[in-house]
Design a binder for these strands. Sequence first.
DNA 1: GTAACTGCAAAATATTTGCATCCTT
DNA 2: AAGGATGCAAATATTTTGCAGTTAC
Lengths: 140, 140
Amino acid sequence: MESVSEILKQNRLSITEGRRKILSLFLQTDGALAHADIEQELQAGLDRVTVYRTLQTFVEKGIIHNIPTTDNSIIYALCKDHCEAGHHHDNHVHFICDTCHKTTCLSEVLVPDVRLPIGFVPKHAEMVVNGTCGDCRPSA
Amino acid sequence: MESVSEILKQNRLSITEGRRKILSLFLQTDGALAHADIEQELQAGLDRVTVYRTLQTFVEKGIIHNIPTTDNSIIYALCKDHCEAGHHHDNHVHFICDTCHKTTCLSEVLVPDVRLPIGFVPKHAEMVVNGTCGDCRPSA
DNA sequence: GTAACTGCAAAATATTTGCATCCTT
DNA sequence: AAGGATGCAAATATTTTGCAGTTAC
């Protein structure tokens, strides 16, 4: 696993406290984070605006990507694979637990190809499954 | 195709001007609509709040459903199939054109099943594909 | 007539922008 | 030292809530 500083360096971003804190949080978290989660965790004090800008920067660099949701929320997850700026290779399925509301990147489960009607040219596909995760279903 | 009034009646909703206008718009539109689209189209004048409340009601009744997006927008589409309140049977893929930004319900393309890791119990899956639609690619 | 729907006003949230200051390289 | 990043203030935008007046049945 790469260190926070290395990841920032690789993306030609200056190493600042805010970026280190936020990126560490993503590395520690095995799932997705919403803006609100990040603010809450880092209550130590990072300006709300800085969080917005940092997340935006990370998305642009391809360090994190956002996961589609049905409500109006935006959630972000670390790109496990090597994403280049603007070219995410994170074609895996995401799972959102209806009980604990945690989002998990199912890195091993790739988004299947689908056959589209004539005329539609696909470029990228996202798939989100919700249901119950292992932690919320001890009887499994 | 069912009439606006019939759909409302079937869902035990009183038939009001606002609901008729908004539902008509969905029936006319072969794609998805965002709150902003609706307000714009109905500039005739429906209060912004009424639009919010009407969309919420329609979603609860299963008349429309919302489509997951990667940005923070919420877009709604008519449930073509017979959705009962809370039980949507709309397991089809949605396509968002990167050029014209229109969203199309690919009613014929069902969301494929995926095999999840042990412990995860799926309940519902959504799939969104983006790329270029037929209208934006005359050469196709 | 009654219950439900709507519009208006306003509150609560969420997001963006400008600018001066501070930090990284 | 120079460019970029941050914090603060404030402007925008979005969504929710309360309530009184109106409409559908």
